[in-house]
């Protein structure tokens, strides 16, 4: 019978479970079946918490609907939701992603007291003078001297980084991390980058070559992965 068709498929992987929800049925149907499935798989005691990836195929779900999914799956604290991924993206969202992953090119000198803020990555062709500040949601590339403050990943993106032809910043900020120049007078460095070193849990300045080891440089790629 048609009713007996399975809308939900569960696959086990190394990382946990992947839950495919068929995109041809109504959301209500899927929820009902999901409740049954979760209910049916009574847990054994001392079972570790399993992480679940939900794949929605060509179904678009609203934030509230995602919330319902989370509620059902995480109800008994046996599962945690790793991600809810749909193949469909809303236009507005896509445009936001596009804006956030674009490189904005600016061709001027940022002088003391001026602040340049962009969404996405910033390519500045020109200097940042002492007392000037550049801010972006993504990476900052400066073809010129960075003598002021640069703040990359202002919305909390710890993967963001800052590069400059000549680096002698008064402060580097990435996400919520802040580092400042030493008190003694020091020479700047040429062609280097500032990024968060996860082991040391702070911002470090290193040769540009280290960036080639970073898996994802574009904000768009990161967006696609994280949904």
């Amino acid at each position: 019978m048609l009713d007996k068709k399975q809308f939900i498929t569960i696959k086990g992987t190394k990382e946990g479970l992947t839950l495919f929800i068929d995109d041809s049925c109504t959301f209500e149907h899927a929820l009902n079946e999901l409740r049954e499935k979760i209910h049916a798989s009574r847990p054994k005691h001392d079972e570790p918490v399993v992480s679940v990836k939900v794949k929605l195929g060509n179904r678009y779900v609203q934030e509230e609907q995602k919330e319902v999914l989370r509620e059902i799956i995480a109800k008994d604290e046996r599962f945690t939701i790793d991600s809810i991924v749909s193949d469909v993206v809303r236009r507005e969202e896509a445009l936001l992603w596009q804006e956030a992953s674009e490189v904005k090119t600016v061709n001027r000198i940022i002088r003391s007291g001026q602040v340049l803020e962009v969404t996405g990555d910033l390519l500045l062709i020109g200097d940042v003078n002492p007392g000037g500040k550049v801010v972006s949601t993504g990476n900052i590339y400066i073809m010129g001297r960075l003598n002021g403050i640069a703040h990359a990943g202002i919305n909390g993106d710890k993967q963001a980084f800052i590069t400059a032809s000549y680096m002698k910043p008064s402060q580097l900020r990435i996400a919520e991390y802040i580092s400042r120049a030493p008190d003694y007078e020091s020479d700047g460095v040429y062609m280097e980058c500032g990024l968060i070193d996860e082991e040391q849990d702070k911002i470090v300045i290193d040769r540009l070559q280290v960036l080639s080891h970073k898996s994802e440089i574009s904000g768009f790629g990161r967006r696609m992965q994280n949904g």
């Binding site: 002492p130 007392g131 008064s170 402060q171 802040i178 400042r180 120049a181 008190d183």
Partner: peptide, 8 residues
């Protein structure tokens, strides 16, 4: 005062 770098 030489404290410019510390301003947050």
């Amino acid at each position: 005062m030489g404290l410019e770098n510390r301003i947050i």
